[in-house]
Design a binder for these strands. Structure first.
Lengths: 205, 205, 205, 205
DNA sequence: ACTCTCGGGACTCCCCGTTAAT
DNA sequence: ATTAACGGGGAGTCCCGAGAGT
């Protein structure tokens, strides 16, 4: 166990270098050699830690799935009202995407056909999560009458994915987190109850 | 002249086969051989029409840019109010993405790092276009007071991109066009003037 | 058609170089690179002619199977008595193995697990062929009473294979063809009828 | 000493696993990893016991050479007449090949180019041994007049090797030992003196 | 002192986009 | 417009030692 100190470091180096490379290009367009060069790890060492390039990508995907799970649990436990939870959680998720290569690469890889669908196993389903939070918001009277929570969930999901894609591709403009804040501002204006809006005036940290 | 007839047909066959292949996988993951097999064109013939695989991809990107330009011109000429134009145009664009492989492949390729950025030359900037339409909408009193047209443009742009990405990746759920309609419905509720809303009741085909 | 002239030459060069290399070591122990170096053919050229290393080996196996078929047909048509046919045919086969690398390599490869058994398809069955010839010999009274033709066929088959293996491995001693002649001499002494022996005195060419 | 107990067991496990693997495929086609997996020994442990994969193979070859030596000594001491000794000894050798993986693998490896010829050092020379026994048989009047003992030795050697090769490759038919018995029957009919034959009627155990 | 984990690269086959010869 | 050839680079496997661990 203490023996594995060096091994752990090597494995970590591989994962980080891989994240940085997979963040720049597709799975297919990223040669293993680039990851090896960046991490300063030889082929032999790599294949000691991972059975294949694909396994490495799947590891990244799994890491990112875990990140989201942790994030969700954390926000659920904070005990905020569902609408604030949705806003806050998506905001933090976006900031994570901006700041954490590992999460970013994992998310990106999850959207490509790497490995069998089974191996990627159930990607984190933002749409369903948002639908739940918004339904509960409606039940608690945080949404205006007549607003369809499912529709709003789909809107926000699309916007989230879009912001991510724009952030990945264009890499300029307001920055992902700012964009998400802006989107919530516009959408909330149309769906949130007057009461919720007045209570959460201009606080979207 | 009769000679060029056949050349045109060959070129067209290549482009269509390429679109169908590039629509299924990334640029890198799509071997030229697959395109040749599908189009029934030999290697030699291909290299007569295109200097490289990359040039073919760039041709598809250019084609899609032209599609969008045509679409824009068309909707500008219809003389609708700017807000209806934005709604109608994005709807039709989405339907095109759903029905036309060529446009779809081109759009997808445009989002990957194929060729130098210069060669892809200015991608069609939906965000700017929407900003213009929405600014004019604000000037014409079609938006509620206090609504920031630029922000709305960014929201819709993100949503558009997101819908496209979701459609590409997940390939299930409401379908792109239905999603876009839904998004407009939610967003318009928050930004459109009461007058515009009453005039454009539930007509988002 | 005149065009294929060069292709044929290249293909031939590959096949011959492959035979020479496969004759020196096992399929697995023979790197493709050695074949390419020897033939002066580049990787690209090779893979234009053969889809894989395995396909090349299978081609050699097929070539050798054809050689044997041709040999059999030739000796069958000569109209000799069955016993003389068996003796003459095995002798010539052995001389072919000694002189022709192609046949030798093919025979050797056929005995290894290259490709699926189906792809190697029915190896030439010397044992069955010898059994037929010897049975006919018995029917024609060329064998002594009480001799079991099947048993003799198995003996000779084993001896043939053994001579081949010895020749491949040890590469010294009397030479394959001489060994086969010798074996026949010993065995015939015990099985051939007095009449046949006197008619075929010391003529084993 | 109690230490060496476990070491011996490990070494033995390696040797047996190696035999089983080398019996299935060529030296080159057998990865060291397969042997390690089968024996449950780690790479490090392996390289403690053997300096290289080749050394392991050579150990197997040596083991088999010793097996043969022991077999020879045993039959020499039995005091049978030389011809019966030859028959009995080859029979038992074949049965050993059938039943003992270790001997089988060693014999197989001895026939491949593993290590330098010097390292394999003088393979057990069946041909010479048979020649000696048969010469003595001739001297003792066990062979018919005019029979060349050396020729018969070469015949039987080839048959032996052939039977082994057939047994390795085809794995069907009468079984090695039965084939050897059959071969002796046919050959003896032609070479053994009437007296020997009548004394050793149908006893080839 | 002794295991054996971990790391090192050379080498495997082969697929790829591309060009030369025709 | 086609057939044929080119060679760089893809992932992955191999046998083996360096050096970290007990």
């Amino acid at each position: 166990m203490p023996q594995q100190r060096r091994a752990q470091a090597t494995r970590r180096a591989i994962v980080i270098a891989a994240a940085e490379e997979f963040d720049r290009a597709d799975y297919d367009a990223t040669p293993l050699s680039a990851i090896l060069r960046r991490s300063g790890v030889t082929k032999g060492a790599f294949y000691f830690h991972f059975p294949s390039k694909e396994a490495l990508a799947l590891a990244l995907i799994r890491l990112q799935a875990q990140s989201w799970s942790r994030l969700w649990r954390h926000w659920m436990r904070r005990g905020l009202d569902p609408l604030s939870t949705a806003v806050g959680m998506t905001g933090e998720a976006t900031r994570m995407l901006e700041s954490d290569v590992l999460t970013r690469a994992g998310t990106r890889l999850a959207g490509q056909q790497v490995g069998t669908a089974a191996e990627r196993h159930a990607p984190p389903d933002w749409e369903k999560l948002l639908a739940e939070l918004l339904t509960r918001s409606a039940d608690n009277g945080l949404l205006r009458a007549g607003v369809d929570p499912g529709a709003v969930a789909r809107v926000m999901h699309a916007a989230l994915v879009g912001v991510r894609a724009i952030g990945f591709e264009y890499r300029n403009g307001p920055g992902m987190a700012a964009r998400i804040t802006e989107i919530w501002r516009v959408v909330l204006e149309g769906i949130a109850s007057a009461e919720w809006l007045s209570n959460n005036d201009r606080s979207r940290p």
